[in-house]
């Protein structure tokens, strides 16, 4: 399972980048979208570790907005570097998935 977790890490980061690229969003909303996609094991903590990494690597813009409940919430949008990162993610994904499909079909 350890390997599966490693594999999923990159994939989930790509998913989070993609979700953010569709428009400003926040942690809980991203988690919900991933779960709707079928990633049932994803919890807010999982997403938080990813958004924190994106933040550290300067791939997102952050705006803190007051929330009706609890502390202010961080809203994310992609910056130019984030867009670029996402583009590269999909390119890599294309390479990997096309090769794997080829292997499976032959």
């Amino acid at each position: 399972m350890g390997n599966f977790r490693e594999m999923m890490k990159g994939v989930l980061e790509g998913c989070v980048l993609e979700i953010i690229s569709r428009g400003e969003t926040y942690g809980y909303e991203i988690t919900q979208k991933l779960r709707e996609l079928g990633f049932n094991d994803v919890v807010e903590g999982t997403v938080y570790t990813i958004t924190m990494r994106l933040e550290k690597n300067n791939l997102v813009n952050i705006e803190k907005k007051p929330s009706t409940i609890g502390p202010p919430r961080k809203f994310y949008t992609l910056n130019a570097a984030g867009e670029e990162h996402l583009k590269i993610f999909w390119q890599k994904w294309e390479v990997v998935s096309s090769k794997l499909n080829k292997l499976k079909e032959n």
Binding site: G27, Y28, E44, G45, S67, I69, G70, P71, R73
Partner: peptide
């Protein structure tokens, strides 16, 4: 802590 506060508040 901020992350946990958000979850607790919800």
């Amino acid at each position: 802590l901020s992350f946990l506060e958000e979850g607790a508040a919800a």
